[in-house]
Amino acid sequence: MGATIILINLATLVCLVLAFYKDRRKARQSLYEAVKAFIRILPVVFIIIILIGLLLGFVPKELIARIIGEQAGFGGLLGVALLGAVLHIPSLISYPLAGSLLQSGASVTAVAAFITTLTMIGLVTIPLEIKELGKKMAFLRNGLSFLIALTIALLMGLIL
């Protein structure tokens, strides 16, 4: 568990020092933004942590494997991809969830599909996208993103 965490914290520290060196006021504002974002995301973090615990504790691996495992059909894959498109979880928090799914028997393809649609497609934000960029662009982007997410997921299943 150690290496990545140490790396990230070190990198952040270096960036922070550089930021303070460059512009003290802006750096302080960044920290303020960071604290604000951290507080806002905290409840969701706890929710996801508990859900992961319940997932690994209560849902049998065989069940997960049957729905979205290596041997599962295309239906399960389509299901998680759609779920990812509809859900509106901060992507930061979706990675631990995805990791726990992987641990509990889901296939690489299904997990990749889930996080890719989750981040790329926002059904919730489509109205805003239409307003700013027009219907054609919004629908094309979200529709194609879905197909591309499925393709990426299938390719990842083949590669890994």
Binding site: T4, I8, A11, S30, A34, A37
Partner: peptide, 15 residues
């Protein structure tokens, strides 16, 4: 990991 990530995001969004 999250505090570091949040600080990075804050830095990017401001700078």
């Amino acid at each position: 990991i999250l505090p570091a990530v949040m600080v990075l995001m804050g830095l990017f969004s401001v700078f």
